[in-house]
């Protein structure tokens, strides 16, 4: 089939796609977007997390045919121009990356969280990231990174709306 869908805001087509292959495979192997990682392939680890119609989902569980006509956002879409986006910067600064395999999925999950919840509690952060498994860090630096990302998102929202974050 010819798969037509939107990726990071741009209309994309991929040809000779088998409807049963995963969205993750299409992104990585056909569209040259290897940011989303292929780890467990079972929806367990969250390394392949992408936005699907605006909500995070495991790209390894979505058949290519199911993605037709839908909007996909990958970790590559979190960048700002040639630089890193604010969530990505937060992970670098907090030292939240070791081997890095889980990082793209965590970035998408974190982006979703800080967009939805202005000041997430630690419990909310843990619950929101429950579907993203990291086998290196023990999560402490990841927690730091998410808190940093949330603070920055909140303060940029506040400056945009002309208010201070009292």
């Amino acid at each position: 089939m010819r798969l037509s869908f939107t990726v990071n805001g741009r209309q994309c087509e991929a040809d000779d796609v088998w409807e049963g292959e995963s969205l993750l495979y299409v992104l990585r192997e056909r569209l040259g977007l290897p940011g989303s990682k292929n780890a467990c392939e079972q929806g367990e680890c969250g390394s392949c997390t992408v936005y699907l119609d605006g909500v995070p989902a495991c790209a390894c569980l979505v058949a290519a045919g199911q993605a037709a006509g839908r909007e996909v956002g990958t970790v590559e879409g979190l960048a700002e121009g040639d630089g890193l986006g604010a969530v990505q910067e937060s992970f670098v600064e907090a030292g939240a990356v070791q081997c890095g395999f889980c990082t793209p999925g965590l970035l998408v999950a974190t982006d979703d969280l800080v967009n939805r919840v202005p000041h997430p509690s630690d419990a909310e952060i843990r619950e929101s990231l429950a579907g993203n498994l990291c086998r290196c860090t023990g999560y402490e630096k990841i927690m730091d990174a998410v808190r940093l990302a949330a603070d920055r998102r909140a303060s940029s929202e506040a400056s945009r709306s002309g208010k201070t974050d009292a």
């Binding site: 969250g46 997390t49 995070p56 989902a57 495991c58 999950a109 979703d112 579907g131």
Partner: peptide, 9 residues
């Protein structure tokens, strides 16, 4: 049940 990524699917 499950995780956010799975509940969304």
């Amino acid at each position: 049940g499950a995780s956010g990524q799975l509940r969304n699917l």
